[in-house]
Amino acid sequence: MARPKSDDKRNALLLAAEQVFAERGLAAAPTSAISKQAGVAEGTLFTYFRTKDELVNALYRAIKLELADVLMSHFPRQGPVRDRLEYLWNAFVSWGVANPQRLNVLDQLSVADIVTEESKAVGYEPFAEIEALALYSIETQVLEAYPCEFIAATMKALAETTMGFMSAFPDEADRYRKVGFDVFWNGVARHSA
Rank of each mutant, 00 (worst) to 15 (best):
L133V: 04
I151W: 10
V97P: 02
V111N: 08
P4N: 03
A17P: 05
P30S: 06
S110V: 07
V105G: 06
A153K: 15
L45S: 09
Y60T: 06
T161M: 03
T51S: 13
Y60V: 09
A128Q: 15
Q37W: 07
E149R: 14
E160N: 08
A168C: 02
E125V: 10
E149F: 09
I138H: 05
F21K: 11
Q141C: 06
R190V: 06
A29M: 11
L13R: 00
G96H: 01
R24L: 05
G187K: 08
V122M: 01
Y136K: 14
G25T: 10
T47G: 04
F127K: 05
V40Y: 11
V115I: 12
T31E: 10
S119C: 00
K52I: 08
F127Y: 12
R10C: 06
T154E: 03
M166C: 13
R50G: 07
R24E: 13
F150A: 11
E144T: 02
I34S: 07
A29G: 07
L109D: 11
V56K: 03
M1H: 01
Y176E: 05
R84E: 12
D171T: 07
S32G: 07
M155L: 08
E117H: 01
L135I: 05
G180R: 05
F92V: 00
A91Q: 12
L135P: 05
T161I: 04
E172R: 07
I34A: 14
E149V: 04
V183A: 10
T51F: 12
L14Y: 04
D8S: 13
G164C: 00
Y146V: 05
M1F: 10
G123D: 02
A62F: 06
V40I: 14
A33E: 12
V81M: 13
E23F: 09
F181N: 11
K156D: 08
L109E: 07
G79Q: 12
K9P: 01
F181G: 01
E160A: 09
E129W: 05
P76V: 06
K5Q: 03
M163A: 02
L133H: 14
G25R: 08
S110C: 01
W89D: 04
N186S: 09
P100R: 14
D171Q: 08
T51L: 02
S32H: 03
F21W: 11
G43W: 02
F184C: 02
E172W: 09
Q19L: 08
S94Q: 09
A38R: 04
F169P: 03
A153M: 05
Y124G: 10
T44R: 06
E66R: 13
I63S: 05
I138P: 07
L88N: 11
A2Y: 07
D69F: 04
N11W: 04
N11Q: 03
G187R: 06
K5V: 00
F184R: 05
D171G: 10
D171C: 08
R77E: 15
G39Q: 00
L14H: 10
V188K: 12
P147D: 01
K64L: 05
Q108A: 14
G187I: 03
E139V: 00
I63H: 00
F184I: 00
V188I: 07
A153V: 01
L14S: 09
Y124K: 13
F150D: 08
V142G: 05
V97F: 04
N186G: 08
L109C: 06
R77L: 14
D7V: 07
V122D: 10
A33P: 02
T31F: 02
M1A: 06
K52E: 15
L26Q: 09
E23C: 12
A12S: 15
